[in-house]
Design a protein around this nucleic acid. Structure first.
Length: 295
DNA sequence: CACTTGACCTGTCCGC
DNA sequence: TGCGGACAGGTCAAGT
């Protein structure tokens, strides 16, 4: 599911609810998704209090009162849904329906807090993971975090940083380059397609054939589409929901993603779907032309 | 090396 | 209606 804007939306919700809550119990049934030893994890989690909820790339980082941090990757279908324990049946609030039906068959981990609240980690496809790691040196020592490129929405993120990292992947397509989490952290399939459309770059174009002007447009476009998405609670194509179980509405602004067969909003030609870097890729071949005589 | 292709899973949708 | 295959927001390991 989630790319940077969706994970950030989840983070914002969790940061609203979790800090100061103390973990009373943890239950999990799927060892592969929680690679630390189950008993070890329980021993280290129970009795700790949540300090802060952060994000790096597509990973949620929960800072605990102990010397440990909880890392959660939602991969394709992960959800982190909070139930404050105060909902009552018959309230009729539509967004409460998911919370009332949890846990369900996709629930992999349940965190129970001393005040009766619960946090569910659901993951239909079981690709996601939850890890407990020492907080000290986390960003350097954790194998996943240590490989991530810069955060694209930070004020300090520059066009030079973007270009030099992208151009190191000169042999591959521009889409594969921006999906590479070591080039820039957090871009996934939706925002890659939307950014490339906005920048008028064909996704198959070799990095070496993308002009500096177009790279500049892409740098700006990726930040714009992801910021816009955060403002609308992310994209809900299928499973994605935020910490309250609510869907995001960014896809109503999408220009190409999942719009194959429909007319392009810019030129009216039909949007097509191809395969690039092993991913379904949406493109308007009139607005996004491949350079001639080149790949 | 750099790059590409399956595998990991479950569920849904589409064509026959 | 049933069944097979393709496909789905992401990453890895293994292949070329």
């Amino acid at each position: 599911m989630p790319e940077l804007p969706e994970v950030e939306t989840v983070r914002i919700g969790l940061q609203q609810f979790l800090p100061s809550l103390t973990i009373k119990d943890v239950s999990f049934d799927w060892p592969k998704g929680f690679p630390n030893s189950p008993q070890l994890v329980k021993d280290k989690l129970i009795g700790t209090t949540i300090k802060k909820v952060m994000r790096r790339g597509k990973v949620i980082i929960i800072d605990l009162s102990s010397k440990y941090s909880l890392l959660i990757h939602l991969k394709m279908t992960g959800q982190l849904v909070f139930d404050d324990g105060k909902h009552h049946f018959g309230g009729g609030h539509p967004t409460d329906s998911l919370i009332h039906s949890l846990p369900d068959r996709s629930t992999r981990v349940t965190f129970v807090f001393t005040n009766g609240a619960k946090l569910y980690f659901n993951d239909q496809r079981k690709f996601g993971w939850v890890k407990l790691e020492p907080t000290d040196g986390l960003y350097q020592n954790n194998a996943f975090l240590s490989k991530l490129g810069p955060e694209p929405l930070e004020d300090s993120y520059t066009f030079d940083q973007f270009t030099s990292a992208v151009q190191k992947r000169s042999g591959t397509s521009i889409k594969a380059a921006i999906l590479d989490q070591s080039v820039v952290a957090g871009v996934g399939n939706i925002y890659a397609d939307e950014g490339l459309f906005a920048a008028r770059i064909h996704p198959v174009t070799k990095v070496a054939d993308v002009s500096i002007i177009k790279l500049k447009r892409l740098y700006t476009a990726l930040r714009e589409v992801m910021n816009l998405s955060i403002a609308y609670g992310g994209s809900s194509d299928r499973n994605y929901v935020d910490a309250k179980g609510k869907k995001g509405s960014y896809l109503t602004f999408a220009k190409v993603f999942r719009l194959e067969g429909k007319p392009c909003s810019r030129c009216g030609r039909i949007i097509t779907k191809i395969r690039v870097a092993g991913r379904g890729t949406h493109v308007c071949t009139h607005c996004q032309k491949l350079p001639k005589n080149k790949s």
